[in-house]
Design a protein around this nucleic acid. Sequence first.
DNA 1: CTGTTAGCGCCTTCAG
DNA 2: CTGAAGGCGCTAACAG
Lengths: 342, 342
Amino acid sequence: MDSKVTISDVAELAGVSKSTVSRYLNNGYISEEKQERVRQAIAATGFKSNFFAKRLKMKSSKLIGIVIPRMDSVAVGQLLSGMNRVFDPEGYQGIMLVSHLSMRRELEDMQSLMQQGVDGIIVDSVGISDRHVELAQRSSLPIMFTGQYHEGVSCVRIDDYKAGRMMGAYLRQMGHRHAVFAGVTETDKAVGIERRQGFYDTFLAGGDSKVDFIETGFDFLSAYQKADEALGLHPTVIVGATDNIGLGVLRYLHERGIKVPEEISVTGFGGYDVGAVVYPALTTIAFDYELMGMRAAQHMLDVLHGLDVEEELSVPLHFIARESVRDFTHAYVQEPPQALNL
Amino acid sequence: MDSKVTISDVAELAGVSKSTVSRYLNNGYISEEKQERVRQAIAATGFKSNFFAKRLKMKSSKLIGIVIPRMDSVAVGQLLSGMNRVFDPEGYQGIMLVSHLSMRRELEDMQSLMQQGVDGIIVDSVGISDRHVELAQRSSLPIMFTGQYHEGVSCVRIDDYKAGRMMGAYLRQMGHRHAVFAGVTETDKAVGIERRQGFYDTFLAGGDSKVDFIETGFDFLSAYQKADEALGLHPTVIVGATDNIGLGVLRYLHERGIKVPEEISVTGFGGYDVGAVVYPALTTIAFDYELMGMRAAQHMLDVLHGLDVEEELSVPLHFIARESVRDFTHAYVQEPPQALNL
DNA sequence: CTGTTAGCGCCTTCAG
DNA sequence: CTGAAGGCGCTAACAG
């Protein structure tokens, strides 16, 4: 089963011309009879059409370049899963490059993909810079971004600012007035800036409250290590910028024997399933990354098919109130653990 | 910056022949002077060599096909991350297809990849069937498998049987004599059969112990739902076939107010980080999926470079004793929670 | 409906 | 060291 069988071999064996075989492979327009002869010849030779030769002629490669910041993230996994869900039935395939959270690599990856003859590129960006915009606008092929937002380019966004606002409003409403926001650096615009700003804007709105900030990484180990520092500020609630951060904090509090939410409350962002299995289950705002992936992919397909589409899409947010936040507006009663709430 | 600039445009602008430009792009053999002219022409035109045209001529595509069972799994993420870590610096790229845990799709994906002109294929298989072996052996390009093991094909395996044995031995040694093994169906040979068999073989070795089996899915929701049934069997320990299963059980026990490990013990397999942040932290056996990915990728590269390599590789197991198992061999003392143990 | 004729963009002998 | 010529495998007009 060498891959040396070409369309000519098949043609010869079937006693027809190359074009006829080609027609058989693509559109119809062949007599039943020859169709059968070609079918047999193909079966006999084990012919496989050469992908590269085909793509050289045709405009479309059915390949979508995807650049992601890292591989080992639940969010990225879900995102890719969503994309795959819509690309796959349409016969499109993703070819992916990892930027390792580096903006420079991200740009390089985009360029590399452009040379690679993909039909379009989706970038799950860590931050859309002017270079990104320039590249996207100058490029002849469709490029879109997920996760982050920037004027002038197509993106499917999560409204991180709004998510921050939701959490701020909820916590205020529960009677909290002093929070520690445990977040990541500002290089991640969506998480580091918008999510945080949204939180500040509503939580601080009354003029009677206060937020302290502590910087951590994205993993829960680093959050775990910073938890003590956060605790030293004596807030009523520690707001993790991601679920992992909330989880790391929760673990630390457990080790210190500090009861959540009785003594202190904790929240996260993301809606990871694991937030539901820890105790207390983590109150969070869920992002539907899978849906985001589907939207991005569908949008890409629409553009490729020449449909008119809007530039900016956004996916809904789901607030998930679980057990990790204390309600100060009522006398506190120890509630029994609720059932699993994914 | 249209992608219409070809090698001829560059040649014309530089006042040389196409071949000279081609030489510039590949091996050397050009005078300093022309080299410079070509360089400038390329910069001026923004020329990008056409991937498909190039691959049509050359034998290697620098593309490795990767088929995975699903996208949204931590293990798969780590595996891919490991592969990427070795492929990337060598200029290789992965193009991946998802089988959605279906063996039929897995086979289809492999064939599809073969037509696609990839240099090699790595399959993170759900189970290596005779069809797999046949395909692999008949194929002209290197194919290797991860996660599962089968004679006659290259694989990087995790010794699931041994992992099962380790857990069985540990639990026996801790004085447990009645376990419930909460596992998945036998369609996943590694997890569903080998891991379980290994456990049975050592745990049951003394003739004085007993194991009951309960079937669950891979997600912790389904484990959570089956936990009650497991509990009804009154074991001293529930052994989850994966960490997710252990986690789901842990959550259920928490809701019922049943203390772990005081009243019952729980374990998992996999070594997911989240197992360390729940309380009690989950005792487990860690598989280094990232290393497995690296090994597989390196092996693939070696084969591609014509090096002699062994057919079968395996990655080490790490036993992680944490807090979720009770030691019956000593009088039980409530231990304070330990520090985070990843 | 089908064979013939041209390339797609690049690499690679082969003479110079 | 360099240009000309041929072809990788396939598709797409073009005449029949």
